[in-house]
């Protein structure tokens, strides 16, 4: 094959009208759902992820997102449905199993935590992949979905109406509720969250329980990861978890502002990601994570005071 033609075909023709205008004028119905789903996922992950990053739990999030796979598949196989409840139970079961196994291996042998993490989540993930390959047809899941999600599939879902006010695909509604839940809980428990993340000793001395906080945060993380799984797959969740928070922390050193910026990043990521995915005919989740990776690189280089350029000039 001719190399030149490969490159020219790699980037398809760009039509502003088709890529940026028509989704909002002609085809609002499917595209608004893709956009909203992308936004809800990135916002929920990013908002919570800000704290996850500060508490150095980022890679735990990665581990959970991989190891829920066998739980999901087994739940499918047992219940023979894609209902939310069995799937959620399966995923939570797998999540609990992950943390328990990591603890057991770490405590009962001389394997260090990092290796224990690496052993447990890859093993569970491998089980999941083999199950998907064996029973893929029955569970309506395939390895592509595992690798980069099927965010676009929300457009195939029937709309369900909410109190007769408006109608939206079920998974978009669910993700919206999860995103609201995350933002609401973080705002409500903002203070204990901040204190226990910054200084667990002080939290303890003013009568808070850092352990309770930790478990609550882990549970919320599990909920968010599980709800995002079908949209972004097992691997890209970590992009949504880490990038918004770290990028924002390069732009401000006030936590409330940082949390605000993560929402803006989620918005930009979902919006640009949707348009790029439409233009390049690629996975929307992949496009969103590439966009927020790009936003991070921009902030890293150009951020005032903390950016590379600023530091070089100083």
């Amino acid at each position: 094959m001719d190399t030149m033609s490969t490159w020219s075909q790699l980037i398809p023709e760009f039509s502003f009208q088709q890529v940026f205008v028509e989704p909002w004028t002609e085809f609002l119905d499917p595209f608004i759902w893709i956009f909203l789903m992308g936004f809800f996922v990135t916002a929920a992950c990013g908002f919570l992820g800000t704290f996850i990053v500060w508490r150095r739990m980022a890679l735990v999030g990665d581990a959970i997102s991989h190891s829920v796979l066998p739980g999901l598949v087994i739940a499918f196989l047992v219940s023979q449905s894609r209902d939310t409840l069995p799937m959620f139970l399966g995923a939570v079961g797998a999540g609990i199993l992950t943390t328990a196994l990591i603890e057991v291996i770490h405590q009962k042998s001389r394997i260090k935590t990092d290796a224990a993490l690496g052993i447990v989540f890859t093993t569970l993930f491998a089980i999941g992949v083999v199950l998907v390959s064996l029973y893929g047809e029955n569970v309506d899941l395939d390895t592509d979905c595992v690798l980069y999600g099927e965010l676009e599939h929300v457009t195939l879902e029937p709309l369900s109406s909410v109190l007769g006010l408006f109608a939206a695909p079920g998974s978009v509604l669910r993700m919206g509720i999860v995103a609201l839940l995350v933002v609401g809980l973080v705002v409500l428990f903002y203070r204990p969250l901040v204190v226990s993340s910054f200084d667990p000793g002080l939290a303890r001395s003013i009568g808070m329980s850092p352990a309770v906080m930790h478990h609550a945060l882990m549970s919320l993380l599990a909920i968010v990861v599980v709800s995002s799984f079908e949209a972004v797959g097992a691997v890209l969740v970590i992009a949504m978890l880490i990038f918004p928070g770290t990028t924002a922390s390069l732009l401000s050193d006030r936590l409330p502002v940082i949390l605000g910026i993560t929402l803006v990043i989620a918005l930009l990521g979902a919006l640009l990601g949707m348009h790029f995915a439409l233009w390049l005919d690629i996975s929307t989740a992949g496009a969103i994570s590439t966009v927020i990776f790009g936003l991070f690189l921009l902030a890293w280089v150009f951020a005032p005071r903390r950016g590379l350029i600023w530091r070089a000039l100083r």
Partner: peptide, 27 residues
Amino acid sequence: GYVPQRESVDWDFPVNVMDVVLMGRYG
């Protein structure tokens, strides 16, 4: 009242001096 070892907290945490002192009032 508790004063932990200085290295026990992450000083890159995005809060300012006033925020830290106000944490003392949270209890």
